[in-house]
Amino acid sequence: MEVTTHSAADETQVWGGGNKPLNASYGKMMMWFFIVSDALTFSAFLVSYGFSRFKFIDSWPIADQVFTHFPFLHGVDAPMYYVALMTFILIFSSVTMVLAVDAGHHMQKAKVTFYMLLTIIGGAIFVGSQAWEWSNFIRGEYGAVETKGGQILQFVDAQTGKRASIRDFATSIASERTTHQSSNGIWYQDEKALTTVTLAEVKAGFEANPNLVIRTQQLNENDQKIDLSRAASLEKIEEAQLVVEGANLIRNEYGNRLFADFFFFITGFHGFHVFSGVVINVIIFFNVILGTYERRGHYEMVEKVGLYWHFVDLVWVFVFTFFYLV
């Protein structure tokens, strides 16, 4: 074994503290560690989404047919434009954040304030857009019926190839049925709000409209949903058990139950990150205005929340790809 010698000066330099082998402050490094662990959490969610999707690869909903709304364009089929817009908004707020960090390096308080404000506005618009997206998703558009096996059957006009809304073709049958609430009757029993049309009405309407056929969950070799023939549809509608309108955590009108669950969970978890990011940005924004960092002599806090904010943007890039594009 070779003998290594150290001078006393080396000794204190290496072991005496004050070294910065990674050249990053404590706070910044902890923010990075948090981001790494959070990235693993998000990747676990996205991978489990991939797991469910590959498990039901021949019957997964097609995102283009689910997310078709754009503000102020009612009834216009606009797949993906809105999420693309949301992506741009978030990337842009990421840019204003990095500009704030850069201005902070130059100790320009006014510029940091301005860019932080833009970042907060961008983040708020994004969270609002996500809420709007959720409300459309929860409300649903066309409605569907569910079979005993949990398969979703949607309705299509065979001539135009367009989706048909159950509320449009259902024949109205007089019914006394109202939502059972815990206030009338046994107090521990109640039920969810009734669907706008009943199963019997949908069935009767379907039988009365010779143009309508059933669209199944199954995909053909070109990854399009398989439509049944009219005869097969009439047979299939008998298997319907429930009317499904919109989406909740149990069932949704778009197809596989897990699809809505993952949508709520992953975009919800991301939305929660954006929301907390906005809150943290607001706090830092006021600290900037109050001159806290000016007195401290550096704007590293802006850099740290900047890291978090970019991370949120980074996650959205992946959510966008795996939920809307792929």
Binding site: S94, V95, M97, V98, G306, L307, H310, F311, D313, L314, V317
Partner: peptide, 8 residues
């Protein structure tokens, strides 16, 4: 890559 390398 570009978000992490240049923004972060």
């Amino acid at each position: 890559y570009y978000i992490a390398w240049d923004f972060m």
